[in-house]
Computed example of a mutant assay.
Amino acid sequence: IKLAGNGVMAAFQTPKLHGYSVKFSPFSPTRFACVACEQYGISGSAALLVFEFPPDLSGPPVVVQNCRWSDGLFDLCWSELDPDICVTAGGDGAIQVWNVLNKEPIAVLKNHEKEVYSVDWSHKGDKNLVLSSSWDSSCRVWDVPSGRSVPLVSFAHHSGVVYSGVWSPHVPGTFATTSADGASRVWDLREPLSPQSILPAHEGEVLSCDWSKYDANILVTGSVDCSLKVWDIRNPRSSLCLMRGHDYAVRRVRCSPFSRGIIASCSYDFTVRTWDYMRPQGFTPRMEVLSHHTEFVYGLDFSSFVPSLLADCAWDESIRLYKPKSLLSTD
C-alpha cells in the first residue's frame, strides 16, 4: 500500500456520534473499526462502525457496517482468530461480541459491576482470550470463542478505576493495566492473586499504556499529569524516559509496530503527537504536533500493515486517517 503524497489525510464525519476508540483490522490492510457514542457517552446509544478505505487514501473511508447498541461503547478490539469478529466495551458493564457481517451481537457477556472501559484480544499464546477492564477497579479474562458466559479469572488489586488493559505482544499470558490509583501493574495470568510488577507510574490517574513491539520489557504509560513515561518493567523504581508536551491529559498511547522508538499519543488538548524516545541525548523526544481536531481526541491506532499510518477519532464527530510527516523518514 502506498500513500499519495506526504502527510495525506482522509476524513470521515460521524454526525451526533462522539468517537471513543479506533482499531485497525489485524487481517485486512484496508479495514478498521470505530466505536462512537451519542451525548459524549454520558447517555444515549452508541455504534460500532466498520470501515473500508482506498489503499492510497484517495477518498474517505466508507462505512460497510453500522452496529447499534443501546448504551455507551468505549473501546473495541478485533479477534485474532476470525477477521469478522469484534468485541466492544459497554457502559452497561458488559462486553459485546459481534460478527460484523450482522447488526446484532452474537453474545453479550456481563460480569462487571460498572462500565467496561477497555478490551484487548490476546495475540500471543492462547488466542482465545479477551481482557476487559472496568470502572469497578477490576479486570476479567474471558474465553470468548468457547462461548463461556463467565470469565475465566478476575484481577482486583487496583484501588481505583482501571482505564486500560493490554496484552503483551511478546510473553503469553502477560498483560499490563493502568488505573486511577496512579499505578500501572503487570500481571501473569497464572498468578492472579498478585501482580508481577507495580509501576508507581504518575502523579495522577494513568489512562493508557502500550507495550513496545520490539522489547518485551518496555511499557509506555500516559496520564492526566500530561506526560508519557517509558518503563523497563524489570526496574519499576524509575522511568527510562519522561515525555512532556501535552497541555491536558494523555488519553491514549500507541507504540509503532515498525520503528523501535516511535510512539504516538492523543490528548484532551485536541492534539495527536509523535515521539521518539530513542533519540540521541540532548534531542527532545517530541517530533510533531498534529492539530486536526477541535475536541478531545480519544481513539488512536497504528496500522500493522502500512508503516506509520495512523487512525484517530475524537469528540468533534470525526475520524482521520493519515501518515504524519515526522514519521516518513522512519519507515
Score class of each variant (00 low, 15 high):
197 S>P: 09
134 S>N: 06
162 V>H: 00
119 V>T: 07
135 W>S: 14
172 P>S: 10
119 V>S: 03
230 V>G: 04
162 V>F: 00
181 D>E: 10
178 T>I: 08
225 D>H: 01
159 S>A: 14
141 V>P: 04
134 S>I: 00
215 D>F: 06
166 V>Q: 11
223 S>C: 10
208 S>P: 07
122 S>T: 11
188 D>N: 14
238 S>Q: 15
163 Y>A: 05
199 L>Y: 02
237 R>E: 15
221 T>I: 10
146 S>H: 08
218 I>A: 02
175 F>E: 03
222 G>F: 02
209 C>K: 03
137 S>Q: 13
197 S>M: 12
235 N>P: 09
132 S>W: 00
231 W>D: 03
201 A>K: 07
217 N>T: 13
142 W>I: 00
151 P>E: 03
222 G>M: 07
215 D>V: 11
150 V>H: 05
159 S>P: 11
227 S>F: 01
206 V>P: 11
176 A>F: 02
198 I>S: 11
232 D>A: 08
218 I>S: 00
202 H>W: 03
143 D>W: 01
122 S>A: 15
130 V>M: 07
215 D>L: 06
186 V>R: 00
235 N>D: 14
167 W>T: 04
239 S>M: 09
215 D>Q: 13
117 Y>H: 11
191 E>R: 13
230 V>E: 08
178 T>M: 07
139 C>Q: 13
172 P>G: 10
175 F>G: 03
116 V>K: 00
194 S>I: 15
131 L>T: 06
131 L>N: 02
147 G>S: 12
175 F>D: 05
